[in-house]
Computed example of a mutant assay.
Amino acid sequence: MEITFLNAIELLAGFQAFLFAIYLLFNKEGKKLSNYFIAIFIVLLAYNVLDFFADLILNRWSENITALLQILIYLAAPAFFLHVKTSLFPNYRLKTKDLLHTIPFFILLGIVISLIIIENMQGSVPAKTERIIGLCFYAVLYLQTFLYLYFSYRQLKNHKEIFFENYSNTNTNRYGYISNLILFVAVLYSLSMVNIITRWVFQLESFSFISYVVITAVLILFCWLIILGLRSPQLFIDETEAQPAVQKLVKQNAGNSALKPEEENNELIERVNQYMKEKEPFLDASLTLHSLAQKTGILSRELSILINHHLNKHFFDFVNEYRIEKAMELLAAPDRKEYTVLEILYEVGFNSKSSFNTAFKKHTGLTPTEYRRKNKVSVT
Score class of each variant (00 low, 15 high):
residue 211 S to H: 09
residue 211 S to R: 12
residue 172 T to H: 08
residue 375 N to C: 06
residue 237 I to Y: 09
residue 108 L to R: 05
residue 275 Y to M: 10
residue 53 F to I: 02
residue 182 I to D: 01
residue 182 I to P: 00
residue 181 L to A: 01
residue 163 F to N: 07
residue 297 G to N: 09
residue 175 Y to R: 08
residue 220 I to M: 10
residue 199 R to F: 04
residue 304 S to L: 06
residue 64 N to E: 15
residue 80 F to A: 03
residue 133 I to Y: 04
residue 90 P to R: 08
residue 152 S to G: 05
residue 100 L to T: 10
residue 323 R to I: 05
residue 81 F to R: 03
residue 49 V to F: 04
residue 110 G to R: 04
residue 153 Y to S: 03
residue 245 A to K: 12
residue 35 N to C: 06
residue 118 I to C: 11
residue 169 N to D: 05
residue 34 S to M: 06
residue 81 F to I: 03
residue 325 E to I: 06
residue 100 L to I: 13
residue 222 F to H: 02
residue 96 T to W: 14
residue 252 Q to N: 13
residue 119 E to S: 13
residue 29 E to R: 14
residue 34 S to D: 02
residue 162 I to C: 03
residue 46 A to T: 02
residue 184 F to Q: 04
residue 281 P to R: 12
residue 124 S to N: 13
residue 348 V to N: 01
residue 126 P to W: 02
residue 287 L to T: 09
residue 174 R to C: 03
residue 204 L to R: 13
residue 247 Q to I: 12
residue 345 L to Y: 11
residue 339 Y to G: 07
residue 132 I to A: 12
residue 343 E to F: 11
residue 162 I to P: 00
residue 226 I to W: 08
residue 110 G to F: 08
residue 5 F to Y: 13
residue 18 F to N: 03
residue 178 I to H: 00
residue 85 K to Y: 06
residue 195 N to K: 10
residue 142 Y to F: 15
residue 105 F to C: 05
residue 337 K to G: 02
residue 367 T to P: 02
residue 259 L to D: 14
residue 71 I to H: 04
residue 244 P to F: 07
residue 362 K to H: 14
residue 61 W to H: 14
residue 227 I to A: 07
residue 10 E to P: 00
residue 91 N to A: 15
residue 245 A to R: 09
residue 315 F to H: 06
residue 13 A to Q: 03
residue 72 L to P: 01
residue 31 K to D: 08
residue 173 N to A: 09
residue 250 V to R: 00
residue 186 A to Q: 09
residue 179 S to G: 12
residue 103 I to E: 03
